[in-house]
Computed example of a mutant assay.
Amino acid sequence: MPSISTEAPSAADLPVIAVVGPTGSGKSDLGVALALELGGEVINADSMQFYRGMDIGTAKIPDAERRGVPHHLLDILDVTDEASVSAFQTAARKLVEEIRGRGRFPVLVGGSGLYVRAALDVLEFPGTDPAVRAGIEAELETRGLPALQARLRDADPVSAERISDARRVVRALEVIELTGRPFSSFMPVREYVSPAVQIGLGVERPVLHDRLARRVDAMVEQGLLEEVRRLEPAGLRTGRTASRALGYAQFLAVLDGKATVAEATDATVVATRQFARRQLTWFRADPRITWVEHNDPDLLAKAVAAVCPGRPASILDR
């Protein structure tokens, strides 16, 4: 963890402040508070908040709650576009340098674990080739997933142990064919590409479950069904990434007459809780994260101390 002196730091010394944790833990609010306290700008790392029009169901922070803090990488994709971790990495790292160049702290906020690591860590993304991928997908269609899994075990047993769904197996075989390297060699390592501090928001599981249920209920009251109805003609149903967003898939079923609003609400709550559990598993595995309870009365002070240990509070007044 870098120590920030009381002298004016150089741009390269300003760490990226990453606010992470499960959905519904208050990351957006803490990100804004840190940006205001330290002088920073927020970079969104929630993959579903990239999409224009997906506001209610992604809990996108409204303009008024941004409190004048610049927010980047919100509303950059149409619902028919596919989100790309590689493209995000390029855009996020460019923004980090630009924000540092302005003498401000980059504040990365989001619960999409791989996107956070793509911005912060040594992580290489191999290219893609539509023709190669199409050939492997054709093999999947004719020979089935077990045959491709067997092929992956022969070429890269480490990856074969880690992945099982068809899409990722196809991707692993594509990378192996294109690069001649095991897919597992491209896995991220816990090494920052530049100074960074990660702050995790902890929430006790029963409290988080209750918060998530109330959050989904609020989304429904705010018009989640109407938002889905408006986005469906724009291509929500066919978007490879957007269509899988929590709440949107469930409420498309309401439009199709396959679920009631109450059933879609319950299904969204269950799916959101499951997603939050996976997020916690991902982030808890990273020993570099400083955890602070979401309801700690000294939350902001502790977060600031994690970024600037030993720095007098008076210097933080802006």
Rank of each mutant, 00 (worst) to 15 (best):
F105R: 12
D121K: 06
V109I: 14
D55Q: 15
A155W: 11
H72V: 06
A147I: 11
A118H: 01
E98S: 14
M54C: 15
I136W: 08
L77W: 02
L74V: 13
E141I: 11
R93F: 03
A138S: 14
A147C: 12
A83Y: 12
Y115M: 00
G57T: 05
R143G: 07
L108N: 05
Y115F: 05
G68T: 09
S86R: 01
A59L: 15
A118D: 04
P130K: 15
G110N: 04
H72E: 04
L77G: 02
V122H: 12
E137H: 12
E139I: 11
D121Y: 07
S84Y: 00
G53V: 01
R133H: 11
R102N: 09
G127R: 09
R66S: 12
G103C: 12
L108E: 06
G101Q: 02
R104A: 13
R102L: 02
R102F: 05
Y115W: 10
D75Q: 01
E141R: 15
V109K: 07
G110S: 09
G110I: 01
A150V: 15
A155K: 15
A134S: 10
E137Y: 09
R66D: 07
A83T: 13
V122Y: 04
F125Y: 04
E97G: 12
A134N: 08
E141H: 15
I56E: 06
T80N: 11
Q89P: 04
D75Y: 01
P146E: 08
P62Q: 10
T58H: 04
T80M: 07
M54S: 08
A87E: 08
V79Q: 03
K60M: 10
R153A: 14
I76F: 02
A134R: 05
P62E: 10
I76K: 02
Y115R: 01
I99A: 05
G111T: 03
E124R: 13
E65R: 15
G111M: 02
R100K: 14
A87T: 06
G113S: 10
A119E: 03
E97H: 15
L95W: 01
V109S: 03
D129C: 12
D121C: 09
R67E: 08
T90N: 08
R102Y: 03
A150M: 11
E82W: 08
A92K: 02
R67V: 03
Q89Y: 00
F125H: 00
